[in-house]
Amino acid sequence: MAHPAHYREAHPFIFVMTHWINLVSIVALTISGFYIHYPFLPGLMSVMRGMHFFFMFVLLINLAVRIIGAFTVKSATRLGTREVDTDIKNWLPQKLNRGQMWPWLKYYLFLKKEHPIGAKYGVLQKIAYLFTIPLTLAAAYTGFAIWGPTMDWGFLIAGTDAVGGPMAMRIIHYYIMWGFILFTAIHIYLANIEGTDPSKLIFKWEETEGLQFDAEGRVVGGKGH
């Protein structure tokens, strides 16, 4: 047992909410997206399209709220502590993560036995999470480019022409959805493979005890020390 303590300061309630909204939106967008791609059951097209168009705005607004939150809400920048700092610090390069990319890769490739020291979000984790922002924006751009009410807008048409027409745009949009599916699969796997404490915190806002760390990432106490 070498699990860090998961305190609420790591994920303030607003981010528990935005995470929930992301989850519901992405699931709804994926199901309705698959349906719009190929209506596998009769009778649901207007419902599915309505759902798709509703949740695309929800997802975008949620992204905006999350980004604003990054600058206005304080959260812990490492696990196993109740110390907080402005949340954006988590999304910029952090001292605790410096030089840790290769150790993390080695850890996941079973070339390193010990758990690498890291900030709340490890190097690879942070890159993956940040990557969802351009992925969401790309989904939005390609989606609006094939959505009736907006497909004729100049800056969307420019993209449609550049990629070779609406069919190409449709396929890119489809692959972006698969990007979300792959991200989500890996995210769920890595978040839970060493224990479900992270899920308890982000879904139920439930704290779990564990190791506590100092600012240098050294274990300084807590359960399992």
Binding site: A2, K113, E114, H115
Partner: peptide
């Protein structure tokens, strides 16, 4: 197989670097 599923491996004491 490496016993990491019940809480992960023990933490390194300091960074490799």
């Amino acid at each position: 197989a490496t016993g990491r599923t019940s809480g992960g491996a023990p933490y390194e004491e300091m960074k490799e670097r």
